[in-house]
Design a protein around this nucleic acid. Structure first.
Lengths: 259, 259
DNA sequence: GGCCGTGAATGGTCATACCTTGTTTCGGGT
DNA sequence: ACCCGAAACAAGGTATGACCATTCACGGCC
């Protein structure tokens, strides 16, 4: 179903507490809960949907805007409004966390520690559950790192993909999403970091250690290897300054952190 | 500064890519990044702010709505729009995660595992860093549990507070926020669960084990104790059915999960 | 059969008016 | 002089209508 059936949209119940636009959000949210709206579905045009729900277009737009802000809906001018269809693993928008970091003055170190905990957790789970294909992919990425010791940009690609494969191997999409959310923020603050060849070699070896531990189905070793990797990587950067991103990216931050 | 100084708001730069309302979001977000807007600040009235930024009121409202949806701003009719001031620890809105769970069919078991990983992580950190006051608070809550074995509702209060104290003791507000986000969703799906006295007694003992491990500054033991606690608790519930919340709560879900 | 232009569909923005709800203030009563 | 209530004001919420900007599809043209 590319376009949602019109019949499933009912006029808003007035007893829904709160403001009218909140009622719109509630109604659309419940339709998603009930599976009446699925990823990739296209909503009716705003003018029609406003009529169907019995609200004005600005009110409907306010509701759509709220759901778009949390990454559930996506509007494209001239095309329509769609339920977000994630091609890869589900991902959460990282801007709320980034804003919260700014508001409360979180340090990079604190953010890094959160990532460390999450990466260790997924590494442990991956050691228990990784399939042959997934382990093969990890091995390929490690090989790619060794082959890119003189090309930091290419190295970074393999690095990111390795961590994503580990996360996917954990079999827990929620932890994966949370990890990516944190990693994205850290990534943005040091995107310009230049790596030296010696650092890259050590990094590749660390990744290889992680792969081996997962290959041996040894969760403890995998956690330890991930700890070593990230802790050493942290030391290579200057993580002393407070968090202060100044980028202007909007929408879903789907760029993912590396190590 | 209860009310933000008007001078800090500048007309929107037209070169900001994307739509106009996205420009509003970007501008306000950067002002938060730069610390020009702080928690508790009140924004100028919409009509004035729209003039200051050089956009129409509906467009401004769209931007405010986006930031309100992610829990950064809060509008109160008749009062004004404020930068969210969290009294307690910073918290992230759990609705994005809940919506994503609905969209991708996450199971309660998967959500539970994510919580388990997070709780084990914070328990380990708490064992390393908990202060005397924090440990004292934990002990009090454990005592409160034993004193409420015949009052499930009261027991629940101590239970929640114990877990929050552990999280706070970890010293990592990001992990704490993520944990609360996941715990909130699990909490909502089983709010009605009735506990038997025998379960409560076992639960209290499990919490006592966690406390002791933290008291001994033994991260491994703390993680293991938390694992035992949550794993046994999980067994006591029926976590077989898929996730299907049908509540209508909007805004920030700041109710926190227990076990 | 493929390419390009044109137009309908659709979201984005704007202006304006009015309603609902908090907040404040001012006046009368105690 | 203090307290309380009602009225005036302020501020966000909603509705209506119009117009602009972009996308996509259809159909004619080469």
């Amino acid at each position: 179903m590319t376009s949602a059936n019109v019949d499933i949209f009912k006029t808003l119940d007035p007893e829904h507490a709160g403001t009218t636009s909140e009622g719109v959000v509630t109604q659309l949210r419940e339709m998603i809960h009930r599976g009446e709206l699925r990823p990739g579905d296209r909503l009716p045009p705003e003018r029609d949907l406003a009529k169907l729900l019995g609200v004005s277009r600005p009110t409907l737009r306010a509701g759509i805007r709220s759901l778009a802000a949390v990454g559930v809906l996506q509007s494209r001018q001239g095309a329509g409004t769609f339920v977000v269809k994630s091609d890869g693993p589900p991902s959460l928008d990282s801007s709320p966390l980034r804003l919260m970091a700014s508001l409360h003055g979180f340090t990079s170190a604190e953010m890094f520690e959160a990532r460390l905990s999450l990466e260790m957790a997924v590494a442990g789970l991956a050691a228990e559950r990784a399939t042959g294909d997934q382990m093969a992919t990890m091995a390929e990425e490690v090989a790619g790192m060794y082959a890119s010791l003189d090309d930091p940009e290419q190295f970074l690609v393999h690095d990111v993909r390795f961590h994503q494969t580990v996360a996917a191997s954990s079999g827990n999409r929620i932890l994966t999403a949370l990890m990516n959310m944190v990693a994205t923020i850290l990534f943005e603050t040091r995107i310009k970091t230049v790596k030296r060849a010696t650092d890259l070699k050590e990094s590749a070896e660390m990744h290889r250690n992680i792969y081996r531990a997962i290959r041996e189905h040894n969760p403890e070793a995998a956690r330890d290897a991930m700890y070593d990797h990230l802790t050493r990587a942290k030391r290579a950067w200057d993580l002393e300054e407070p968090l202060h991103a100044e980028n202007g990216s909007n929408g879903n931050g789907n760029s993912n952190g590396d190590h």
